[in-house]
Amino acid sequence: MFAVNFLLLGAVLFCIGVFGVIARRNAVMVLMSVELILNSVNLNLIAFALMNGNVDGQIFALYVIAIAAAEVGVGLAMVLLVYRNRRSIALDELSEMKG
């Protein structure tokens, strides 16, 4: 396998995730796109671990998985709270903090 296989796939998934974060209005969909971004980074880490022949990249990938799990838990709790207060999770309506 070539290193560019993994790296280009990671780049494609990253850009699709960035598009999702920009385009989506529903907070849950934005969180899904963020997961896509984090996963594409993991793919790069795994490819570099294989390229350099040590396990450091795999350890980083495991840590990223743990952080992503924590992020989803807190993120969805916040979405739930917003929904309970406003009956809507459309991100463009959350403008109370605008100065």
């Binding site: 396998m1 560019v4 993994f6 598009f19 920009i22």
Partner: peptide
């Protein structure tokens, strides 16, 4: 939402250029 398309395409072009430039012949 359509503003996301040019952003993603430009980002992809930039990333692919850098990746191919740096790792063109690297075999795993």
């Amino acid at each position: 939402w359509a503003i996301g398309i040019p952003v993603a395409v430009v980002l992809l072009g930039l990333l692919s250029y850098v990746i191919i430039d740096a790792y063109e012949d690297t075999k795993l």
